[in-house]
Write a protein that binds this DNA or RNA. Structure first.
Lengths: 196, 196
DNA sequence: AAGAGATCGAACCGATCGGTACTATCTCAG
DNA sequence: CTGAGATAGTACCGATCGGTTCGATCTCTT
């Protein structure tokens, strides 16, 4: 049945619905673990609709990744914004991360996972920008804390965040975020102390 | 031509040859990026030979991952063994890591990548044991350094190692290992100082 | 009222997937 | 010398892949 009778025709909403369903499925089963046909079935859309909105499976994947990157950074930024000082900001970031790791559907960072599966420009570019934003955020926190080399500490905090995500995904999830959070604060304090 | 004339018949060597070629190709292009036919062509072996030795593509993948995990840990252990004290051991680990990151064929940790692509028991188990061995190594180093809670520091060092690997793969490779290495030493010294 | 655009559902495309079967031919152990 | 096992090469299997096309049918804009 074409265009279910009584349904409002809203391309933008259709696009979002496809995006949402694809985000979940591709994250859970991997980029190569879900075919376009199954994707369409899960959305309740036809192939033609999907291809009109995204052009190709890779186009859909890219749209999914960019939207996800934006959402993740908005979420982390919110956590940071509620904290009163740099140390509390770091604590907030890793506490938020811990809440994510505990969710049963947690499967690592979708953007990094995608770049691992498709080691090609589109996915890699999204990943680079994703990590760039993390690095900028951490460097800002380090700068606000008044450390001598914010870039150095920022990079180390990025390593802690990504490392915690990988370990939570592939080793043990419980306590990893707090472990990384304590390491982050230790690094912050050590760097502060050494530069009075 | 079956069994090229003059070639010694050595199943064990054949197996190793398949393993070696598959290790390189699957690492470079991803588990789903290479078909069995291409794999056979790269090895110079027939499908029947591959399937007789490994049973299935997944069997081959598992053999590849386990061999790789063994090799990586032997390599890291060698780096550790040459250092005179815990701090030097950590330095050696991250220096070795840096050398790996700089290689043009570096594509992240093959075992973690595989577990990301196949989020199913076989690959996941190899990954868990792989990280277990890292954790044990780092915990031992922490214990030798005499810190109060070697497990805590060991876990943090594991996070640094995996984080550095991810960042080197997906963000920037140069200097990441040394950045993580300095963080590792900072954590070690901070933990030592707080527990006289 | 009419045309434009959106959507579904299905058929269809060539290519490729992992895996099997078979033959011819070689090596190697007895 | 003989039989068992290893191998290359090829053809083949059904399934699935990403992607295209088409007609029917709906909504929306004018």
């Amino acid at each position: 049945m074409p265009v279910t009778k009584g349904t409002a025709l809203d391309p933008a909403r259709t696009r979002e619905a496809i995006l949402a369903a694809a985000t979940e499925l591709l994250y859970r089963r991997g980029l190569d673990g879900v075919g376009v046909a199954e994707l369409c079935a899960a959305v309740g859309a036809s192939k033609e609709t999907l291809y009109r909105h995204f052009g190709s499976k890779d186009g859909l994947i890219q749209a999914v990744l960019e939207a996800r990157s934006d959402r993740v950074h908005a979420w982390i930024s919110t956590a940071v914004a509620t904290a009163p000082d740099p140390a509390a900001e770091l604590h907030a970031v890793f506490e938020a991360l811990g809440g994510w790791f505990e969710q049963p559907e947690f499967r690592g960072c979708a953007i990094v996972n995608a770049a691992t599966q498709r080691h090609s420009p589109p996915a890699r570019l999204v990943a680079v920008r994703h990590l760039d934003r993390y690095l900028e955020m951490f460097t800002d926190i380090a700068a606000r804390a008044g450390v001598a080399e914010p870039g150095e500490l920022g990079g180390q905090l990025l390593i802690l965040l990504e490392g915690a995500t990988v370990v939570a995904d592939h080793h043990r999830a419980d306590g990893v975020a707090r472990l990384a959070g304590r390491a982050a604060l230790t690094l912050l304090h050590a760097t502060e102390k050494s530069q009075p």
